[in-house]
Design a protein around this nucleic acid. Sequence first.
RNA 1: GCCGCGUUCGUCUAGUCUGGUCCAGGACGCCAGGUUCUCAUCCUGGAAAUCAUGGGUUCGAAUCCCAUACGCGGUACCA
Length: 517
Amino acid sequence: MTKPRVRFAPSPTGFMHIGNFRSALYDYLFAKKNDGDFVLRIEDTDQKRFVTGALESLINVLNWADVNYTEGVFQKDSKFQIPNSKFYDSKSYKGIIEIGEYGPYIQSEKLEVYKKYAETLVKDGHAYYCFCEPERLEEMRRDQQAKKQPPIYDQYCLRNVTPEEVNKKLKSNCPYTIRLKMPKDEMIEFDDIIRGKVKFDTNLVDDQVLLKSDGYPTYHLANVVDDHEMKITHVIRGEEWLSSAPKHLILYRYFGWEPPQFAHVPLLLNTDRSKLSKRQGDVAVEDYIKKGYLKEAIINFVIFLGWNPGEGSTQEIFTLEELTQKFDLSCVHKGGAVFDIQKLDWINSQWIKKLSIDELYERSLEFWRQKEFYNIWDKEQQRKNNKEKGDYIKKVLTVERDRLINLSGVGENNIFFFVSDIDYDKNLLRWKEMSDENLKASLQKSLDILTEISDPLWTKENLEKLLVEAAGDKKGDLLWPLRAALTGQQKSPSPFEVAWVLGKEESIKRIKKALSL
RNA sequence: GCCGCGUUCGUCUAGUCUGGUCCAGGACGCCAGGUUCUCAUCCUGGAAAUCAUGGGUUCGAAUCCCAUACGCGGUACCA
């Protein structure tokens, strides 16, 4: 196979949709596995839907996920910028540069090119000017629907407007579009990498507008022109494009270009099996980032929605690197997949367990800073000039790691680590039917043991060893009151872990307080 | 309506090309048990799919063929 070239071509109309992100991932894996190029192109041909900042956030998500492309549109300070490569500043976007020899990679920057191609098509008799007004088109469609005919353009302008009239209208600046002239009575057939043979009857395919009256190309024209000019070999895109594929194939034929190979990937679905939408949950990758899902988990999860290494493999957790080895585009499923947040949660917790404490710390910091209890605690530590507060957080994380579903939940179940005075009912301290004297004796025993432990021996392991030894058969008698005294909670990590984090001084203080109740 | 695509446990899926080893395997979730001072982790086990339905072909079909149903996508001067 010649060196494959793929492209991810989003529109800057908002956030990065998770389904779109999956397509980008498939692009990335396919390019990587086959040692190909991966181009990021921006399809901003719809002025009405343009959203400021969307392009930047699209790039940011790819950067965040380490899905690095090799050509196209980059942020000026991008970490993926290819050293020593030539680049130029984008004409229309600040802080954006374009790298590669097939640019511009932003469609709004090459409007004349599309126009020229559209006019060539007209000259060759493969397209024609259309002066129909939106109102007429709408009426025509309504009519066709009533008559149960396929809703396609009736070619009014092709049949009724003479070349002279066309010239006249063009000269008088009459608004126009250019339409593709679909051939008649033909079956367009092509081989989709994922779906196999797909057939369409050209009589049922519309004479698609290629050039809009505002001078912008439609997706169909711009996409085909760019894919050709950028030497794209494999077009990986969502299933929603499948029915317009014949239009694209016809364009390639009219231009005399060889079409790329197509791979139409299935859609992501809501629980009710409709197309994944905002109404039923989060669809933007950014939403999941904010909720504390790791990129490793999101990638892992999303790729497995519609693809699986097969051959009886039971491995569920994969790095991007491992995925790259195994990925096979032709094994992507045909059917849509429901986005199941519970499975994502599980994958995320698996990935969190794999993180080192230092890594967990670095990556969770931004989430700590969103917590009120943390900020209050943090201020207090600053006042005390506590230089070890980072170590303290790492200890908390050591205890929490196996319990975390996502990073945003950090600290939340263990706020007692961050408050100086915990408040609870005395009865919480009582293990089963324990009497007051026994309770006091139990706490006193814990106190004695802990007081005896010297600082260097204040480790999780040692605390556990000494306390378990002292507790003997009746662990609950000793451990429950201690844990309750340390945490003030019904449920919490073990007293060994908690005491270890709190340190000797604070632990003793809390036991003494419990004794005084 | 028309065109296209799809359909294996609730969900993600293995198996389908190259029919028998599949009265269908794994994972999430759920339930039960174990470990355990509580929670979580971890471990063991369980329930859960007449392979959308109906017809064929065949000694034999989740796997091949046909029809139907249902779902989804498209049907724009949106992508």
